[in-house]
Amino acid sequence: MSRENIKYTDEELIARFQKGDERAYVELVRRYKDRLLNFVFRYLNSYEQAEDVVQDTLMKLYTSAHMYREIAKFSTWIFTIAANLAKSELRRLKRRRVISIHNMGFDDKEYEIPSESYDPEKETTSAYGEKQIQQAIDTLPDQFKTVILLREVQQLSYEEISQILGVSIGTVKSRINRGRLRLQKLLKELKEQ
């Protein structure tokens, strides 16, 4: 089944699924589950919640496949759903983190500390470790965070990102540049701490 599906593009698979072929759905799930997880995990910095968001995204694919129109690439459509769900989840998590930090008697400011899901053994060997980078990502304002992750982690094109976010390519380019500079500044601050 999987082998014969290699010849189908994502767009052909969603078209088949729209006509009722459930195997096409399974194939799309297999193609996208880990890719989506990587994006959402970096966005939320929590594996459990990220996996839930990916489940919801793929569930949404099942229930709303009829909403997809071939004018967009399938990948941009599914990333749009994931980005929206991740955004709502982050808002919910932040509220919850603030509440739990309050209960522990810390300052509000400290709720951005990396969550319990971080595994220090995974640290990369480059000049910047995974921990530092994740910490900087967590602190990026949302308008930069999404573009930066879609560009640097998912390596999507400016055009794809512009479709996902529903903003012009010019806006995407400017946000990516400003987001990178902001990230660099945050990493510098983290290094100096």
């Binding site: 997880l37 995974k122 990369t124 995974e130 980078i133």
Partner: peptide, 9 residues
């Protein structure tokens, strides 16, 4: 460094 962040499954 961002391109080589470990992937999760």
């Amino acid at each position: 460094a961002m391109k080589t962040l470990p992937c999760c499954q």
